[in-house]
Structures are given as C-alpha cells and as structure tokens.
Amino acid sequence: MRKLMVQGVTSGAGKTTLTAALCRHFFMKGMDVVPFKAQNVSLNSFVTDDGGEIAISQAYQAWASGIEPTRNMNPVLIKPKGSGQCQIVLDGRPWKDIGRGGTNQEMIEEIRSHILRSFDDLCLGRDMVVIEGMGSPVEMNLKDRDVSNMWLAKAVRSPVVLVGDIEKGGVFAGIYGTYLLMDEEERDLLKGFVINRFRGDASILGAGIEELESRMEMPCLGVLPYVRFSSPQEDSMDLRQISGGVRGEGDVRQRWIKELDGLLEKWEGTWDLSKVEGLVDRV
C-alpha cells in the first residue's frame, strides 16, 4: 500500500486540485488509486451509492481515479449551519451538532478512531491512496485537535508534499514558515514542496527556490502554471466559488474529467512526476 499526502500552506492553495490531478495521474498509469480526506468543512456535499454524505470534492477525486465515491473517502464532514453551529457528519451520517465551544478531547479521540478505521477500510486491497490535508498543518492553536494533517500523516506514515499558492504573494515565506513550525518527526515526513498558480516565466523564481531548497534540505517538485480550472470548491467557505463548472450541456462530471486531463497536459514538464513517484516509497 503506497501513500502520498498533499498539504497546503493555506486554504485554497490548490490541494483539492493537486490531489485530483495526482489521483488521475496514477489512475492513468494503471494503478488502483483512491482519494482520502479525513475531514472537510463544506456546504457542498454528495451522496454516495451507499447513502452516505461526503464532500463533493472527494466525489470528484474518486471519479478522477476511475471509481465511484464511497463514504469512507471522507469520514468527517463538518457542515456550517450558521450562527456558530455546525453539524458533524461522521461516516456519512449526521453525528452531532457542535456550537461555539467546538470539540472536546474526548470527541477528538472518537473522531480519530473513526478516521483510521475508514482509512484502513478504504485502502484494503488498493495499490495507492492520495490523501488531502486541510487548511494549514501548522495552525499552532489547533494542533492538539488536528485530525486531518500531520496527526494523520504520522498515524499512517505517509510522505507529505506541501503546496503553496504564489498568487497571494509571500509564497516562499509561507512554505518556509510552515516548515519551521513543524517538529522533527513532521519535517521528516515532509518530502518536498510545490509552487502553484504561477503566471509568467518561472525562471525568475530560480534564486528563491534554490534558497528554500537548501534551507529546507528538500526539493521543489514543481512550479505549476496558473490554469483556469473549475475545481469543485476547494476546502474553503467561500460561497462565491461554488458556481464554477456548470456551463452549456453535457454531463458535468465528464466535462470536469476532460478539464482535469487538460490541466495535467498543461502541467506537463512543469513538475517532476518521477520524483513525486519516488517519494511514495521513501518513508
């Protein structure tokens, strides 16, 4: 069982798309690959064949992997209900509502055990899993309640790739700061970084990338060019993004897969997929 995890410097850094693209890539290479995201905060959900509710983005990632979505691809879904209330969907079924107080340690432990069980069920008999993290892995105030980033990477011993969005500016700082705030074991699992949404001639980044590579002692795996892509909502709460994708006729899923293939084509040569593949076994 091979694993690879995608974590982001921020929300909306491109984790969802990158995870889908990796799923697609491994699927096209003939691997039996599945997507996994422990926890999602989203209003956009999808109902699986077995009647479970998961986030729509895992459903799309499943289609990219050539399989139908199942509820264990996204065991925890948090659905904001307004005025500080959230519904937690666990294993595809409403579990309980939480208020402003959020979760307590006891609930966290229970959620964690559900996540690991789903993960094991999902991976049974598969070649490979691509795991998507959530938000930033170094929100230091939330670390003891983490169920979706480094806690998971450690628990399942998965190598991690960090993606940063250059569009906002400060991407070097974001990537380096994320690394600096990780502990030894976490840095050990972190194998490389990717810069996303770049516009222009990537050679102007050269000096910066070299400096980061030597400071962090790990490779930059790619500078991915900006591609307009209607990803089904990153793990953000931004409602404005929801509308993307549905234009004209035809099956939206088919259309989206075609777009994803187009994206992979445009990314070709801008990232080192053989290096990425190499990481998978390096834990």
Binding site: V9, G12, G170, A173
Partner: peptide
C-alpha cells in the same frame, strides 16, 4: 482569513 497565518508570520521574518 486564508489560514496559514502562523506560517506566514514566522516564515516572512525568518527570511
């Protein structure tokens, strides 16, 4: 707002 504030603060000053 986007998350990652800890990382950006620490990373910016460290560089």
């Amino acid at each position: 707002d986007w998350g990652g504030a800890f990382a950006y603060a620490v990373g910016t000053l460290a560089l």
